[in-house]
Design a protein around this nucleic acid. Structure first.
Lengths: 350, 350
DNA sequence: CTGAAAGCGCTTACAG
DNA sequence: CTGAAAGCGCTTACAG
């Protein structure tokens, strides 16, 4: 029995190579390379012949192959390791990185770590095995020392949102402690003395800093810290809603809430609405979120600027790629207090 | 004058190569390659020697180089071309693609097109020049014929959100027309006879389909279409807010609004709140959004499922990469009517 | 079980 | 202005 190819299946047409373009144009590979890379010193007629061949063969240069041989070794791609691409904080940051990278015709590889240390390492390794030119990382692990080899190999690293541990490297952070402090002062200014802290996972550095800011502001205001008004390790909307309901149902309930993170804020609102207390208990959330100003009451927040963070990180990265080998920098982005209503509710006798 | 290297600057240490690992382990490059790729048939002691050398040199395989030589040519990376990574629709879709790709240890290159045809082509070209194994594209251009060469070269393509034009290829879409029709029927069921259409840019295919569904439902209900109640080309929150205010300020104002897209819905809510009409004018939006159920009134929507869309697209893509060469498929994902309050407001005499 | 030679698609470093 | 040879880091296709 003779074998026949299935006539229904069109065989794939392999992509044209530089060598084939050269053959069709009747020039050497080097001349094609010159035309493709826009190098000067090729007679117009040869340029034309090459252009015609490129177009007829629909030639697409293989940038991986060219990067392999190029002395710079640059791949014109960077990697971004973020917490969760589906979360607005990550995605807005990513978009800002993209806009900066785009000006340089640099592409972006990206992935989510979901608070998983192992995933952070896996992604970083996958990116470096593809020889990205640089990395922007929102670290989740307790130690980033494993990245020293990358830095020494010349791959610039910029950390965002959280400071790297065990490694001296560039980073761009929000001033979490000052922001949290501002939130508590703002609530105290409205007359509150029983201000609860609703916190994210206590092992997250930014959560620790925000808690530190909360504690410091209480001290500065001479308010007695009440352990019953502090809840840690809230990582989802439901966690936060349950904790808020419990807090408000107890004796000596707080009259104001400081929610240390986006999802926690939303959980708190959910609980307040269910209890019908949204106009009676004050609330300030850390990190702004879409539609905060369409809710009733409008939600006061300590706003971070993830777009500014992404932009700054990308600009820092490209400065390094442009040869800046100065000592590592730490950019602290200020937060903004955005009073919208929920944070200005006065305490009432309950 | 003799030149000295700046002593403050540590020279970069070049990455170890497979050749160097081989030299240190005292074996051939081929043997190292076998160990790195987990191929059988290497004596345990050589495996050990190679492992030690890899670890001491901190060797990272160069996957680009290996892909270049490998017969499959696979790079284990796919490209996603999306509307706007900062928009939840795109970012949730991307995240779902990531989760599927992750199971296969495939990386993701991504970029935003912002409704710009040129940007779509630029991104696609950049991705194919890096020889991605496949592409997931939310097309914005009026013609995707330029992608025929990619398909013929064997790069699978899956379109999402919008159907490709001038090219037969796999795609995953929401049933926009049926969803819009449902919205209008839902409002008519509540007693409305003057239902306005607030539409996105009229040249966007999905906007056209949603408008078609709107018109069809009016016909089915025997409601006279009123050109004064139709507004197209709203692409931002502000556009939509202004148009809504104008609509509601005019004589014979509509008693219900169908907002054909996310940002348009939010603009409509903004205007309704400013006019104090949010509890008196009915509203249904196409596409769900975070916090829709925390607003007052809660916002009824026709929900799409961007995560399901991303998952389906990625699964289709990997099926193709696994060798499925059957005819191109078109997946139509149903929408869900989510009644929450705003869409059930009854018309009132005004 | 192991390795030497050739080659993936391109650029470098030359020489003319 | 142009091109032939070598080589980037790896795998293939062999041969032993």
């Amino acid at each position: 029995m003779t074998e026949h190819a299935d006539p229904a299946i069109t065989p794939y047409r392999p992509r044209a190579t530089l060598r084939e373009v050269a053959a069709m144009a009747g020039v050497s590979m080097k001349t094609v390379s010159r035309v493709v890379n826009g190098e000067a010193g090729v007679t117009p007629q040869k340029v034309d012949a090459v252009r015609v061949a490129i177009s007829r063969l629909d030639y697409r240069p293989n940038v991986s192959a060219s990067a392999l041989r190029r002395s710079s070794g640059r791949t014109a791609a960077i990697g971004t390791v973020l917490e969760d691409l589906a979360n607005p904080f990550s995605s807005v940051l990513l978009r800002a990185v993209e806009d900066v990278a785009n000006e340089r015709r640099v592409l972006i590889l990206t992935g989510s770590v979901d608070e998983d240390q192992q995933r952070e390492r896996t992604l970083v390794r996958a990116f470096t095995e593809r020889r990205v030119d640089g990395l922007i990382i929102a670290p989740v692990g307790e130690d980033q020392g494993y990245l020293r080899a990358e830095m020494e190999a010349g791959t610039p690293l910029v950390f965002v949102d959280r400071q790297p541990q065990g490694l001296l490297a560039d980073c761009v952070l929000s001033d979490n402690e000052a922001g949290a402090r501002d939130a508590v002062h703002h609530l105290a200014d409205a007359g509150h003395r029983r201000i609860a802290y609703l916190g994210d996972l206590a092992l997250i550095p930014t959560a620790q800093q925000r808690f530190a800011g909360y504690q410091r502001a209480l001290l500065e205001r001479g308010l007695a810290p009440d352990p019953a008004h502090v809840v840690h390790d809230l990582h989802t909307v439901d966690d936060a809603a349950r904790a808020t309901a419990a807090l408000l149902g107890a004796a000596d309930a707080p009259t104001a809430l400081f929610a240390s993170q986006n999802l926690v804020t939303i959980g708190a609102i959910t609980a307040l609405q269910e209890l019908g207390l949204e106009h009676r208990v004050a609330l300030i959330g850390f990190d702004d979120f879409p539609l905060a100003d369409l809710l009733q009451p409008r939600v006061s927040v300590i706003a971070q600027d993830p777009a500014a963070m992404g932009r700054a990180a990308a600009e820092l990265l490209f400065q390094r790629l442009d040869g800046d080998r100065g000592r590592s920098r730490r950019l602290l982005l200020p937060t903004t207090t955005v009073p919208r209503g929920s944070g200005e509710i006065a305490p009432e006798a309950r």
